[in-house]
Design a protein around this nucleic acid. Structure first.
Lengths: 313, 313
DNA sequence: TGATCAATGGATGACGTCGAGCTAGACCCT
DNA sequence: AGGGTCTAGCTCGACGTCATCCATTGATCA
């Protein structure tokens, strides 16, 4: 059997009979032949791999993103590298460099804060990059993000509509890519006429509890909380109850993300849902586009969000 | 500058002057040179990559495993492929095949049920495999698991010591690797003299609720529940309260895993803690061992567990 | 009969790197 | 000066695959 013919069958080039094809496939099976994708990638310049770089593993969207991205990539016949930058710009750079040396065809990155120039640099040198929740203006790069402003407006409207008048916001000290709607609103001009106040904490349950304490200090008449993610919201609910405030009667709380526990904590959490499946599909499609048609300028993709009204507000 | 000399510098082989080294490093910086790891792997037969294959992404241990494994591998200078088998043996096989074609040096696998022969086959053909929570008897393979039997005994002892007399167990229809202590105890011979009953459900919050209903049907005098994981335990707590049973007064509930929400649900969950960091470190070390000294027979690693007593039992 | 086509396979070079072996010169020691 | 040792640098081949180009064989078609 000639190598050339085997190559034709393995690569589906056509130009062989069904009988030959079957004979070759049988032989492959029997001998346990595995094509060496390193060698193939070396010559074709397409390695069949992509990379996913996240900021930290604790982020609830990461899992869904990884799962869904993986599905898309399997359909594309690509394998996926996975790495975390641990919220460190240098490490993010090292990861990009390393995976690029492994000849990934493209990368999905949840970028650390202020690393747009770094990403733009890599993409300009030829590495296709989809930045999650961040704008990267460069050839070979694009962004995918949730419409957090809309989510923020939905939440504030809901609070005002249900009679809340004094809204506090608990933001995150280290803004994550998609968890802090309205975070840009630094002056705190919440809904018309309503007072407002913003504090920043660690984006955890404990942080949420601390944030509520701080807000009550600043604004004793507080009757609503907008939290940058569901964990923070859960912490705020706990602290409010410990202080003798009822939720939702005395204080309404809205989270963000709709993580799984949000549905079964007491009271169940009203939250801005970020649809992880939708998100991941959009990300994978965007990367595919960048790889297939390199060099084109692309508009960022903005995904809709939804307010899920449960018991907490 | 000769390629050979550059190669020496890049690979730190020695045999060059400091001046040459600096000149080369400068040139690398300036030209944006990236060594092609595909080509390097082709000739050295060490690709610098490993694979992590999980059963499904919803498993709470997966995140911690991924995070910690990634840290270990970074120290080893390896990059990590990531894939999910979605609980499908054929897909697991396809993933192993695909990643092996990408020349991974070894794999960490959370195996789908009854896939030991498949793993043994791959490992016998030369792919180092660390199976998580499963025994694989083969050259080039080993297993890492929690001492779930010990956890099971701890939990039962605690329930008996606190006066429980009628224990029900909620297991999982699709046993996962580490979440179901005592699942082998199919006859239900729980602690001495205590009655016992076991049902199997989906390992989710909803499944836990359904499981409790079933158990109460079978055993109206039930006063304790042992759940195969924390989500199931949370579901069982919710269902028990909906039925008017107080937790822990009327029914004690013990979960397994110590996932993050376990500490802040109401009542906080007594649970068998599986230390994910410890686990992942052991897994990474085991794989490193398999890669460095191939062919040796190895004993499986068994990790200790701990009972975390909170409010639910 | 000659032309065309499909199936098959041979030969050669390239991808970017490392490995082995070699040369030329510098340096030291006797 | 002669011999040994070390360093810096070179040349050549190999890794496993695909691309390119061409050769052979039958079969079919005009």
């Amino acid at each position: 059997m000639a190598p050339r013919t085997v190559s034709r069958v393995v690569n589906d080039e056509g130009g062989y009979s069904q009988a030959t094809r079957q004979r070759i496939l049988d032989a492959i099976e029997e001998l346990g032949y595995r094509p060496n994708l390193l060698a193939r990638g070396l010559i074709t310049r397409r390695s069949g791999t992509v990379g996913l770089v996240v900021r930290n593993l604790a982020d609830p969207l990461v899992l869904a993103l990884a799962a869904s991205a993986q599905d898309s990539f399997r359909e594309q016949g690509r394998s996926m590298f996975f790495a975390s930058s641990d919220d460190d710009a240098d490490r993010q750079g090292a990861v990009l460099q390393s995976l690029w040396s492994h000849a990934v065809e493209g990368m999905i990155v949840i970028p650390v804060r202020d690393s747009s120039p770094q990403l733009a640099d890599y993409s300009r040198r030829g590495l296709p990059i989809v930045a999650v929740g961040s704008l990267v203006e460069a050839r070979n790069a694009t962004g995918v993000m949730f419409d957090l402003d809309a989510g923020f407006r939905l939440a504030v409207r809901h609070l005002l509509d249900t009679g809340r008048r004094s809204i506090g916001m608990i933001g995150s000290v280290s803004s994550s890519y998609a968890l802090c709607p309205g975070e840009e609103d630094k002056d705190g001009t919440f809904g018309a006429g309503a007072g407002s106040q913003m504090v920043r904490v660690q984006p955890t349950v404990e942080g949420g509890a601390a944030g509520l304490e701080q807000l009550l200090e600043l604004k004793p008449d507080l009757d609503a909380i907008l939290a940058c993610n569901d964990l923070v919201a859960i912490g705020a609910v706990g602290a409010a109850r410990a202080r003798g405030r009822r939720v939702p009667e005395d204080i309404g709380v809205i989270g963000c993300n709709d993580i799984e526990p949000a549905g079964f904590v007491t009271p169940s959490l009203t939250t801005i849902r970020l649809d992880a499946g939708l998100f991941a599909a959009a990300v994978a499609a965007a990367l595919q586009g960048l790889i297939d048609e390199p060099g084109e300028q692309r508009d960022p993709v903005v995904l809709p969000v939804e307010l899920v009204v449960r018991d907490s507000a």
